[in-house]
Amino acid sequence: MAYLQSVVTRAGYFTSKKGRLPYLLLFPGMLWLFTFFVLPIINLAGTSTQTPVAGGETGQYVQTFRFANYIDAFNQARPQFARSFLYATLATLLALAISYPLAYAIAFRSGRFKNILLVLVVAPFFTSFLLRTVAWKQILGEQGFVVPALRSMHIIGQNTSLTASALAVVTGMTYNFLPFMTLPLYASLERIDPRTLEASNDLYANGITTFRKVTFPLSMPGVVAGTLLTFIPAAGDYVNAAILGNPNTTMIGNVIDSRFFNIVDYPTAAALSFMLMAAILILVTIYIRRSGTDELV
């Protein structure tokens, strides 16, 4: 770095002040973010406060800075908001419960199968998200093996089906976002020095205590990263609810989708998007603060 800097300085590009190179390196990224994130966001913010043109056609809006749009939008979509956060939370917890033992086994117990298992974890990414969701629908469908099996064991009634239900939506999201949970968990478990676990054993902690006092706390960065990477896309997801749900399981993403593309109610869709973003941002901030993982890195 210092070398590069001196080269740049000697070449006479920046003779006035040292330390400009970092900014120079940041520039392409900043430009990208500005063009494709900041500008659209400003645009979206504008749209969210528009009102229909008086006597105009559907889809024609004029900027009026009507902030009451937000209140209207929220009142219309309150159940979907609640459902989004409920489903996302459930899917995140479920994914954590499934991923933790899996990541633990891969990190500590897999031996020479470690790489194969890791490839298997990411393997679903090789097919499209949509296809996977459709596949999940078939797995849970009448023709799949799950329903007949559960029926024959009398776990579900003869007329109960699993598709088109909240259960299908939540398990679908769990399934789709599982690698986002597993990989960060694996990464942080893998980083734990096995000798700290031995030290814990040596200092009179049995397996369970060692897990509670050493392994789990040390894996917190992975838990936080994994839950965020699962919760955030899950809260905004609409594919799972669209394919696996019913009219009573619609999430906020489905409302935004239909407002934009079916009803062409751009202001409401934009306002809902903003509220979703804000809600996620606030929740995530509180979560990171409370988990106190910054101390661990």
């Binding site: 020095d193 000798r195 700290t196 031995e198 030290a199 814990s200 054993n201 040596d202 200092l203 009179y204 902690a205 049995n206 050493v214 706390p217 040390l218 917190m220 101390e295 661990l296």
Partner: peptide, 20 residues
Amino acid sequence: KKPYQRPVNTVFQNYALFPH
């Protein structure tokens, strides 16, 4: 006996202190 059942303690080569 398990390590946690022994009246034995170890100073590990790399110390193995608990980082958290």
